[in-house]
């Protein structure tokens, strides 16, 4: 017999008795025990918004499926993470996204589409999210036709990291979009170009201008790209940087989301101030 203290919760996960600390989410419990649950809008460094519904699981006694990313484990709950009902829901979410957005630059979603057998061709002439790429500066571009409205950039710009609040969800329903006030271009908005929104975007809707430019050329070659860990040289905080390069040229800078100092977030200098590393002769200034 298991003795359960109030600080612990025991429940059944896919038929396995599982004990976790009280307050643990189903997703965290699954991760601890090696059970895979797909996610899209969840990230370890952001507050769960449970909007994508990719992580839904079946909980006995609950009429609807529950989002694993935000639902806490409950004593004696019986949870099934891969029933037919769950698989159908996930397949449909993936089909919905695939009929709406350009997901070609998200390898995780491509894998899941394959895994769950999502088939976008079942829909005839579905209305898609169309939006010309916004190129407003030399630092990053916004290609909202890839945007799955996961809220991550809004959270990173707001009270999960940056506290700048330059962007918000606007509109309603299918017309919902990420926007500044009155669609003001970013340079005139409150944006401080920390790039934290770019860092959390799961679909590459937000991407470095350098990466965007490189992808426009025939030279884009993921195979030959490397990532080098280093420490930002600008200030005493000492953020860890992952410098992504192809042919010895930087196209993106990130920081690990589980890093104790940055939690994945940087400032404008660490994120975009790398030009001094590269001799100017090797990289002509970009004009647009």
């Amino acid at each position: 017999m298991t003795v359960t203290r109030s600080t612990e919760v025991t429940f059944s996960l896919n038929g396995q008795q599982t004990t976790v600390a009280a307050g643990t989410t189903i997703l965290e419990a699954a991760q601890e025990t090696g059970v895979e649950i797909p996610t899209l809008c969840w990230a370890s460094n952001l507050t769960p918004v449970n909007a994508c519904r990719l992580c839904v699981v079946e909980m006995e006694g609950s009429r609807a499926l529950v989002p694993a990313c935000s639902r806490e484990c409950e004593p004696n709950a019986v949870i099934n993470t891969d029933s037919e009902r769950v698989a159908l829901s996930r397949k449909m979410v993936l089909e919905f996204l695939d009929t709406t957005n350009d997901l070609t630059q998200s390898s995780e979603l491509q894998t899941l589409i394959e895994l769950y057998g999502a088939d976008a061709s079942r829909y005839s002439d579905p209305v898609r999210s169309e939006d010309p790429v916004k190129v407003e500066d030399d630092l990053f571009v916004r290609a909202y036709d890839r945007c799955v409205l996961c809220y991550k950039c809004v959270e990173a710009c707001g009270d999960d990291a940056q506290f700048t609040f330059a962007i918000s969800m606007a509109g309603r329903g299918f017309e919902t979009r990420v926007s500044t006030e009155f669609e003001t271009p970013l340079p005139e908005s409150a944006c401080v170009y920390c790039g934290n929104c770019v860092g959390v975007c799961p679909t590459n809707a937000l991407q470095f201008k350098a990466e965007f430019d490189l992808r426009q050329t025939p030279d884009w070659d993921p195979e030959s790209q490397t990532s080098t860990d280093t420490i930002c040289s600008y200030c005493g905080v000492g953020c860890t940087l992952e410098v992504h390069t192809q042919d010895n040229e930087i196209f993106k800078v990130t920081s690990p989301s589980d890093h104790s100092v940055t939690a994945g977030h940087l400032c404008v200098k660490g994120r975009f101030g790398w030009q001094y590393v590269q001799p100017p002769t090797r990289r002509p200034p970009t004009n647009h």
Binding site: A51, F96, V148, G173
Partner: peptide, 20 residues
Amino acid sequence: RDESCGQCVPCRIGTVRQHE
């Protein structure tokens, strides 16, 4: 389709696909 708040994928896109 018009009244969905747009927050979650099943309803934001599902209501559109159902209507179509």
